[in-house]
């Protein structure tokens, strides 16, 4: 049972968007800050920093979580996915990102990485969600300048599109 001293920066190694990476963190460092400042992955945004806005949503071992309510030292050895991992390496947007663009589901884009990471897990669990289920899943993400209806429309467009490709 190792005890990490409050001032001690320890090595945290993890898999970020399918790549092995590592950085240093003192115990109090939030995962959101670790991603942005230690690993340079600034796609994850920080809004409220106390768990209410959802801008900082990333996926931990596949599950959408708030990175501002998780410590960097807690993700040692685990798998983190962020918005940077959604598009192909050549920059081709994922179907969900493309739908966001086509439906005007973002304006300033500050909240968007959080929405995308939440929806990406949601779509793995629900094949044909109702509008109510979509809105329920999105209740933990706040957008202050775009249009929630457009975001719901983008989710539905993604479902239609993915279905037409796979069927």
């Amino acid at each position: 049972m190792p005890r990490l001293n409050k001032d001690q920066r320890s090595l945290v190694s993890l898999t970020l968007n399918d790549e092995a990476v590592s950085g240093h963190a003192e115990p109090r460092m939030l995962l959101s800050d670790f991603l942005r400042h230690e690993l340079g992955a600034t796609g994850t945004h920080v809004g409220c920093e106390h768990g209410v806005c959802g801008a900082c949503t990333v996926r931990l071992d596949g599950k959408a979580i708030r990175s501002c309510l998780t410590l960097a030292v807690q993700v040692q050895g685990r798998k983190i996915d962020t918005v940077e991992g959604l598009a192909d390496r050549d920059g081709t947007l994922s179907p969900l990102q493309q739908a966001f663009r086509e439906c005007f589901a973002l304006q300033c884009g500050f909240c968007t990485p959080g929405f995308l990471m939440t929806i990406s897990e949601f779509l793995e669990q629900y094949d044909e969600p109702s509008d109510a289920e979509i809105r329920d899943a999105l209740s933990g993400n706040i957008c202050r300048c775009s249009d929630y209806n457009a975001i719901v429309a983008a989710v539905k467009q993604t479902i239609r599109q993915v279905k037409s490709v796979t069927s």
């Binding site: 049972m1 190792p2 005890r3 409050k6 001032d7 109090r28 939030l30 800050d33």
Partner: peptide, 21 residues
Amino acid sequence: MKPPTFDYVRAESVQEAVQTL
């Protein structure tokens, strides 16, 4: 804001956790 400083113990068992408490 950021949390204040603290030491961090990852307990591997209930015994370890209650010992630290």
